[in-house]
Design a protein around this nucleic acid. Structure first.
Lengths: 337, 337
DNA sequence: TGGGTCTGTGGTATCGATAACAGGACGCTA
DNA sequence: TAGCGTCCTGTTATCGATACCACAGACCCA
């Protein structure tokens, strides 16, 4: 066997079994219309030679690039990693590969990353949220590929939308709080300021409570990444300022966990005297006692559904533009019964 | 302006400014040897037309594919998401895009995913750990690209290795436990059975203790994903079986958090009566009181270093084959002083 | 037995960029 | 002014696959 300077190509396989490249291509893509004997011979040759197809060439020729551009703001809080796992499952077996871009919670970065990813002419694009810059929208329209916006379905999307209604999630929790009989509440938030999803959620919550005559005493915000200690600090500040507070609605489970510690340290009975709830359903906190009330956003499901929608679109189906993945309210043990 | 059925190509830009494709290509890649006037004219035309280069075509022609294949076992425990963020930072500005594959903690899947990713002819490959199947190794050798194995640097790698010595990390914790004066220990583990990194770590720990005459009373394992409740169950079983246990060394922070709850529920003073330690340095648990002793593996650093090594290799430098990122032992508050 | 569909296979153009080489214009030196 | 090097730009071939069309032979039915 003579040494090849270049990796094995389809042509080598074709030569090895005395067929044309075209036939080899057909066999390797599993197209029908090839005789069983030919199929066997091609497969054997490909295996023997250790042939690895070149998708770059295939993509250029086929005008179909089996890549999906995925832009998430970050990976630091378990939300998007789970979405990615769901997406990977949804795309499983389709031959589509996700290409990851990090938007860094910042629309200028998102735009830059999107431009880089679009240079690969992906077959579909997944982005987070519904708010995007004008140039971002323009690029996406020009790209003329399916676009799936995930995590939020409260407004109009560019194309498809897969997510939850943040507002409805807030409202649900609001109703649960009313049922539990709390007579006022405080909002605790952190993370990127002006986060639209968070705002909708808190608005939905406040709406329901105030509609029932239960006042929102106030809101404390920390402009930076969420963490348990930060939640603790926020909650301490809250109960100092509003000692009469009966319920703390936190924008996520980490803040809520910190708030729980603060309440316990302050000697307040949970959930009797003061209740609290978070948001996300972070599994890592499942072991805390008492279990924190939260809204499980089913991120894995969202990712998987996004994958399915993409596949449907690429097969020419019209899977509908809005897919709501209803979140699940988990009352845990920090809401009165 | 007439409607174009196809997206704008380099040829269109060339036509628009009356130059050859080659010159446009040179300008857009920032090659030197083009007059300033030409550069300006090309850039203006490209901007006006909204030209997005086609990397697929560029890759095919240039024999250089600006993609990095990254295979991690999963994204479920915050370890690999952080590595990915580090990697993204390390590759920042180089034009290299990571393509993600999930190996699902299973070497057959890893192999399949690797084959798929290699079909893109990536410029480099990043994988996790040092254990890989024979076919995996063969594919990598044949691919003839830089390979970086991350997270473990206790053995020989295929090419470059960036990570920590799991054994040394275990030894370090062992020494800390000796200094604290504990007189025996129990090992608690979960996750994939036969995980080599975990094994090395526990071995290093046990080695140091036994070398000093401090016995390992035993080991309890749960073959499944780690979680706080699982850690609690393991720890409960451990103190039932070995009531005399003075120290619990857990394979990760989630197990350790559960173990902490178990000890507290059993009324054992921590760290006075019984100490414990985890592994990873999961930030999400930073708010627990007492803070759990752990080993911060600096995953972000590992990812970033991997990116830097890849860049160096692609530029022809020889950055060294083994890069140890020393972990940091954080004594927290669950080790006696 | 002739004309039709159906199967299985091959030939050729093409995808959109880059590598390698070619060559004109210009300025400088002898 | 011949000769030579530099700077800038263009021409041609190529990367490795797929789309599209062509076509030979098997088979069917009237």
């Amino acid at each position: 066997m003579k040494s090849r300077p270049r990796p094995i190509s389809q042509g080598d396989v074709a030569a090895a079994c005395g067929l044309s490249e075209m036939t080899v291509s057909r066999v390797l893509r599993g197209q029908r219309g090839v005789s069983p004997a030919t199929i066997a011979s091609v497969q054997a040759a490909a295996r023997d030679l250790g042939y690895v197809p070149n998708r770059i060439a295939g993509a250029l020729a086929g005008a179909r690039v089996p890549l999906v551009a995925v832009i998430v703001p970050g990976l630091s809080n378990m939300v998007f990693p789970e979405v990615l796992m769901g997406l990977a499952e949804g795309l499983e077996g389709s031959g589509l590969q996700p290409v990851l871009g990090l938007g860094n919670y910042d629309s200028a970065t998102e735009e830059r990353v999107l431009a880089e990813l679009l240079a690969w002419r992906p077959s579909a694009v997944v982005l987070t949220g519904l708010e995007h810059g004008a140039r971002t929208r323009e690029m996406l329209v020009r790209a003329a590929v399916p676009v799936v916006e995930i995590m939020d379905c409260d407004g109009p999307g560019i194309d498809c939308v897969v997510g939850l209604s943040q507002r409805a999630a807030g409202q649900d929790m609001g109703r649960a709080v009313l049922e539990a009989g709390y007579r006022n509440a405080v909002l605790l938030q952190s993370g990127q300021q002006g986060d639209r999803r968070q705002e909708s959620r808190l608005a939905g919550f406040a709406e329901v409570l105030e509609g029932a005559g239960v006042p929102i005493l106030g809101r404390l915000a920390y402009d930076g990444p969420s963490s348990v200690p930060k939640g603790r600090a926020l909650a301490e500040a809250a109960i100092t300022r509003w000692p009469e507070a009966e319920f703390l609605y936190c924008t996520n489970d980490m803040i809520a966990a910190g708030a729980l510690f603060a309440l316990q340290a302050a000697g307040r009975a949970v959930p009797g005297q003061t209740g609290l709830a978070g948001f996300s359903g972070l599994e890592i906190l499942a072991g805390l006692a008492p279990r924190i009330a939260t809204t499980d956003t089913r991120r894995f499901e969202i990712g998987r559904k996004a994958g399915e929608v993409i596949l449907a679109r690429l097969e020419g189906a019209a899977p509908g533009l809005r897919h709501e993945i209803a979140p699940r309210l988990d009352p845990g043990e920090t809401l009165r019964r």
